[in-house]
């Protein structure tokens, strides 16, 4: 009995301290981080030709996609070739646009973001640059990659599927 009475006081004090810290985190820190403003972002758009012929090596220009392209979804492809690359400075208010050599046009608009993630609107046109192929609102962490697989594509003697990789990071 003598042993248990003293720790009980300490336990109560400790529990109170924990609870205070937890609620302070909830009601004070959370609103601060969630309202972190994102003014602009830099986005890189890579057009990649993935073919079933090749030795499986990923060129240095696509090294940032290495882990992604090793995913099971791309197991059928053994060759990856950079077709085009564009860098866009995107901001809120008006869409930033660029044309890619396969003929597609891309537009990206910054919708906002928080401490970790960017929210973006992406529009990708059809190959003739007119109609919309795909449009999406998405959120992603800085440097996160969203891939879009378009249709078949041929460049020189290499045939395969055309992929677009969108990678954005705040700032710029």
């Amino acid at each position: 009995m003598k042993v248990r009475s003293t720790p009980r006081i300490h336990v109560s004090a400790l529990a109170l301290a924990f609870a205070s810290a937890a609620f302070a985190t909830t009601y004070v820190a959370a609103p601060t981080t969630s309202h972190a403003a994102v003014g602009s972002a830099q986005c890189q758009v890579h057009a990649v030709l993935a073919s079933k012929e090749g030795n499986g090596e990923i060129p240095k220009s696509l090294a940032f996609l290495q882990e992604t392209l090793r995913d099971d979804q791309f197991a059928a492809y053994k060759g990856f070739h950079l077709v085009d690359r564009k860098t866009l400075t995107v901001s809120s208010g008006e869409e930033s646009k660029a044309s890619l050599s396969p003929g597609h046009r891309v537009g990206i608009l910054l919708l906002g973001g928080d401490a970790k993630r960017l929210k973006l609107r992406l529009n990708l046109s059809e190959r003739d640059g007119t109609g919309q192929l795909v449009g999406t609102d998405y959120s992603i962490e800085d440097h996160g990659v969203l891939l879009i697989q378009a249709g078949p594509f041929k460049s020189g003697e290499i045939q395969g599927k055309l992929f677009f990789a969108f990678q954005c990071a705040r700032g710029g």
Binding site: A37, V38, G39, K86, T89, S91, S92, G93, E94, S99
Partner: peptide, 11 residues
């Protein structure tokens, strides 16, 4: 959040 950029820049 941020004033709109008048001319989007395609780099």
């Amino acid at each position: 959040v941020e004033p709109p950029v008048p001319n989007p820049v395609a780099v």
